[in-house]
Structure formats: structure tokens, C-alpha cells
Design a binder for these strands. Structure first.
Lengths: 210, 210
DNA sequence: AAATTGAGTGAACGTGCGTACACTCAAATA
DNA sequence: TATTTGAGTGTACGCACGTTCACTCAATTT
């Protein structure tokens, strides 16, 4: 512990390589799916030798779990930001449709990862994603329960509606992810579709009897 | 062309092997996903030598497409049968929920294949499944358009609702497929959830304004 | 009865894989 | 300054893969 030229390089360098591995795996997953990419491909793309991979993850499964974590932290931050917006409380539907399309466009890779590996990934990854999505449904249910039309519903019903919303979110995210790049018209179409679907569900709220 | 002891064995034998290959691939797909099973695994499970595979399919991709076809023919037969049932017209919702759970239970493997490979499969398989599902949405839209509440909707709206139903069908099918085997309670829960979701959407119909 | 066909065989190939092991050499520590 | 640490290297291994090719031998055709 004394004077040294670099402020902190060792730890930071390691972190940078770790990020490179995560980024490489995320990119390769987009075209081939996480389950079919190999440790060697990831290492090659990340610019390291295969054996160096083990300094950061003990297996591809662990790398997959790290990607799940990264993806959901992106997703949660997005929802948290959206909740701060006062417009959201007034008009959840249009806001949600906008937020969805915009956020997904920004984090295509992470949304795509979740949508794809939720059903196509290795066992351990699938399980982790399902668990995160279940958490997400419950979190959204808490938000929904405070909305005007819903405040005196049974909690079972609120959970169900929350599931319906999340399910649609995942589906719409799939569509955005599959969307070709330079097509703002398609984007607007998906947004409009999401808006209608949500409005339809919300209109159902009004006449709901359990 | 004259008398022979066997009635027809050559062609039939070939067909049996083909079915064995399809069955083997379907079973292996359930645990690992179609994209990660190998030609040699399929051959092994089907009881043939790897090279014999090529007598029936020119590649794994072609085998995948054959499985898509098989799965959707199962699915279509199911819907056709359900439509004959007069109860369906009176009470689509409960009927659909019942039909869904029962049919999916009966053809778990095929539904699972569609749900899984729709997003996780090889490119060519994904494309084929999406195309079939789009067809399916349009077919369902025709049926829906004849229902009391909907007959004077715009066709855009009907398509949208049809998409919503198919989307939910796929999601619920996923849940049934993931369901552990000896749990009739879970099954009833999923059925009830599907019923509620569809009812919610239908209630929305009544107050719908485009 | 003789000739043809084609589903299934079995050995062999080149390739990419995961992982082991012994290594280097700069940053971190003492 | 001398020592330790640990991220990244390079070789080497055994294995499963897709595909090739020349083959057998029973059902089918002539």
C-alpha cells in the first residue's frame, strides 16, 4: 500500500473483460439462441482465449444466469423511471404502450434475451427467468391495485390482470424484437396494437364481476 | 407385378421408420429443445444408424419443418372437432378453456414443440411456425366475426381480438405443458385462469368503441 | 427365375467442442 | 525493493458431431 502510477487497474480490467464476455454472449444469443452458442465462440468474440473464460464464470450456465440478472435490472430500472412520470397515473394505457415500444427498442438485446430464453434456454436459465417474471407480476399487481377502478378487487383478480398485462408485454416485446430495423411504420403499428389490447382489457375492468 | 406373400411391406416399413424418426425428435425436443439435438441422437433414439436418416430427411431443418406440419395438423383437427360441438357457440369461453386444457394435455408434445420452437428453434422452423400461427389467427377471426357481439366490428378490430386470443392460447398452452404430471389441482387452476382472462376480454367487447 | 432397387449398415474423415495443465508477466502487496 | 497473486496464454487430450462412401441383402419389378 503506497504510491503507484495507476489509480486502479487490476480490478477494473477484470470487470471490463467480464463485461466483454457478457456483451459477446448477448450478441451471439441474438442470432443463434443462448443454448446453442459455445464457450469458445463467446471467448473468441470477447477477445480472450477459451480457458480465460473460467476466470469469470464457472460454466456457460452461470453466464446465462448473469445475463438474466443483467436483463431484468435493465427492465426494472425502466419500470421505475416510468412510474415517476405523472402522466402514467392519468393514462396508463397510452403511457405503457409508449414506454414499452421505446424501452424495448433501446434495450432490444436484453428484452430479446428474456423473450427467447424464457422458453428456449437451458433449464437453469428458463427457471431463473420464470421466477423473475413471477416477481414482476406481483410487483405490477401492487401498482395496479392502487388504480381507481381496481382498488376494491380481490387480490386474486388483481394478480390475474397483472399476469395478463405481463404476458402481453412479453408478447409485444417479442414483436418489437423481431421488427426489422428501419421501419417506423411497423413500430407505430405495434404500439397501436398494444394500446388497443390494453384498452380492451381495461374496458373489461369496468364491468368486471368476480 | 404378380402374386407375392406380403401385401405391402416396403413402403409401409419406410413410413414406420419415418414416424420413428419424428417421434424420436419430438421426444428429445421436449427436454433439450429441437435446436440442440443432433442428427446422431435422433437416429440412435429411432433405432437406426446415422446415415439412414438421410433416406427420410435431407437435413435436421427439414425434419423440423415436418414436425411443425405434424403439430399444426393435430392442432387444426382439434379446433375443427371443437367447432362441431354446439355448446361452443353458446358459451365459447368455458368451452374454449376446457378444450384448451384437455387438448393440450392430450397432445402435450406437439403443443410444447410449437410453444418452444416458436421462439427458440432454428430460423427456418421459427418462420414456419409464425406463418402457421398467422394463418390460425385469420381462421379464428372468421369464426369470431360470426359471434353475436362482434358481427358489426371492423375487420381490423376482429383481427386484433383474434390475435389476443391466440396469444393467450399459446401462453396457456405453455403453462399446461410445463405443468407437472399428477396435479389435477394445477390443471383446474390454469383452466380457471384461462376462463377468467377470456371472460375479461369478452366483457371488454361489450363496451368497445373503435 | 433373374435383375433391379433402395432402406439400412459400418468404417472412416475432418472439425469444433469442453476442459486439463503448466506457463507468463504485470499489478498489487508486504 | 522483493514477493505474491491472478488474469490471460498455448498446447494437448478425448469426444461427439455431420457427412462421405462402398457395402448388403430382402422386397419389388421384369
Amino acid at each position: 500500500m503506497s504510491d503507484a502510477v495507476p489509480v486502479e487497474t487490476r480490478q477494473a480490467q477484470k470487470e471490463r473483460t467480464r463485461e466483454a464476455i457478457l456483451a459477446a454472449a448477448l450478441e451471439l444469443s441474438q442470432t443463434q439462441g443462448f443454448a446453442q452458442i459455445s464457450l469458445r465462440q463467446v471467448a473468441r468474440q470477447a477477445g480472450i482465449v477459451p480457458t480465460a473464460f473460467y476466470r469469470h464464470f464457472e460454466s456457460m450456465d452461470q453466464l446465462g444466469l448473469a445475463l438474466v440478472e443483467q436483463s431484468f435490472s435493465t427492465l426494472r430500472r425502466m419500470i421505475r423511471d416510468a412510474q415517476r412520470d405523472p402522466e402514467v397515473f392519468d393514462n396508463i394505457i397510452d403511457a405503457a404502450a409508449d414506454v414499452l415500444v421505446e424501452a424495448v427498442k433501446e434495450s432490444k438485446a436484453h428484452f430479446g434475451f428474456v423473450a427467447r430464453e424464457r422458453v428456449g434456454g437451458p433449464d437453469v436459465v428458463r427457471t431463473a427467468i420464470r421466477h423473475e417474471l413471477d416477481l414482476f407480476v406481483s410487483e405490477l399487481a401492487v401498482v395496479l391495485a392502487r388504480l381507481p377502478n381496481i382498488e376494491n378487487w380481490s387480490s386474486d383478480d388483481v394478480q390475474m390482470v397483472s399476469r395478463l398485462f405481463v404476458r402481453n408485454m412479453v408478447s409485444n416485446a417479442e414483436e418489437v424484437v423481431e421488427m426489422p430495423d428501419g421501419r417506423p411504420d411497423l413500430e407505430e403499428k405495434i404500439k397501436e396494437g398494444a394500446r388497443r389490447q390494453m384498452r380492451l382489457i381495461v374496458v373489461g375492468f369496468r364491468d368486471w364481476r368476480s
